[in-house]
């Protein structure tokens, strides 16, 4: 079947979608947007969290067909989304997946290059909240949404909002630091 929807502000169309495919699969394998992660595919880890019409959901539990005519924001569009929130523009960057060539040429780059990041993305880097990074995209989408509706979350609020996102590397302390940091910077 064909599914037409908006991803990170850009109209997208997927053809020959198997009816049982999840939104996660379509994003990762058909849209070239592998940022949303496939850690459990049973709604128990949050690594595939995306915004569906603004609401954080597990994209592994959304059937692709349910996204017809709906709006998705993934981690790839998070910087633009945050920017639009602050500056009121609706523009969205071009999302791209990882081709093999790019993967082969992967190089560690310094963090201060001119990539525009959302406050929460920058805070995750600065606070040391990223280790293996597999949980990071889902946490970023969830944390960004928390800060959107609650500019001054308490620690308990942060913990509750992120309680659907598993991290196996960090012990969560640096993730809490990152959200606190982003909240403070947001206020400043």
């Amino acid at each position: 079947m064909r599914v037409t929807f908006t991803v990170n502000g850009r109209p997208q169309e997927a053809d020959d979608v198997w009816e049982g495919e999840s939104l996660l699969y379509v994003l990762r394998e058909r849209m070239g947007l592998p940022g949303s992660k496939n850690a459990c595919e049973q709604g128990e880890c949050g690594s595939c969290t995306v915004r569906l019409d603004g609401v954080p959901v597990c994209s592994c539990l959304v059937a692709a067909g349910q996204c017809q005519d709906r709006e998705i924001v993934t981690v790839e569009g998070l910087a633009e989304h945050a920017k639009a929130r602050t500056c009121g523009t609706g523009a969205c960057g071009s999302a791209k997946g990882t081709g093999l060539d790019e993967a082969q040429q992967w190089q560690a780059r310094p963090t201060d290059e001119s990539v525009e990041l959302s406050p929460i993305q920058q805070a995750f880097i600065d606070a040391g909240a990223v280790q293996c990074g597999f949980c990071t995209p889902g946490l970023l989408v969830a944390a960004d949404e928390l800060l959107e509706r609650n500019a001054e979350p308490t620690d308990a609020d942060i913990r509750e909002a992120l309680s659907g996102n598993l991290c196996r590397c960090t012990g969560y302390e640096k993730i809490l630091d990152a959200v606190r940091l982003a909240a403070v910077r947001q206020e400043a």
Binding site: L33, T98, R109, T111, V115, Q121, I125, F134
Partner: peptide
């Protein structure tokens, strides 16, 4: 406490994990 060189890629979703590869 220098920051991770792969941090930016990891927070933008561009970091290519093994399950992200495509050919």
């Amino acid at each position: 406490s220098t920051l991770r060189p792969d941090g930016t890629l990891k927070v933008t979703g561009e970091f290519a994990y093994a399950s992200d590869l495509w050919h």
